[in-house]
């Protein structure tokens, strides 16, 4: 288990990274850090794609990982643009302190 590395090892590593990312999303109260955590989760998914693609002998895993990188970059760009707008108008990046929208 320690000296013989299988595909499952890589997937478990990805699951742990995904979990830490989720923890960041749930526990942190800063939009920038939440966005960083989401990047972490997307990277974990990419690791699964590449590990399983390697295992299955399928180049599709690498192709998808590349496209997911592009999507993640688009999401990050839009996210950062909105964060800049919000920080200018609201002076806070804590989603809980943004309470203008309440019933």
């Amino acid at each position: 288990m320690i000296t013989e590395i299988t595909t499952t090892h890589w997937i478990v590593l990805a699951a742990v990274l995904f979990g830490i990312g989720l923890l960041g999303v749930l526990a942190r109260r800063n939009a920038l850090v939440i966005l960083l955590s989401v990047e972490l989760m997307l990277n974990a998914a990419n690791l699964v794609f590449v590990a399983l693609g390697h295992h299955l002998g399928d180049v599709q895993g690498q192709v998808i990982a590349m496209v997911v990188m592009a999507i993640a970059a688009a999401e990050a760009t839009v996210g950062l643009a909105v964060i800049v707008l919000v920080s200018r108008t609201c002076r806070t990046l804590n989603p809980d302190e943004l309470t203008e929208l309440k019933g």
Partner: peptide, 11 residues
């Protein structure tokens, strides 16, 4: 308001 909604939607 719109910026706040956009940020929440995005997250």
């Amino acid at each position: 308001q719109a910026h706040e909604a956009g940020l929440k939607f995005l997250i």
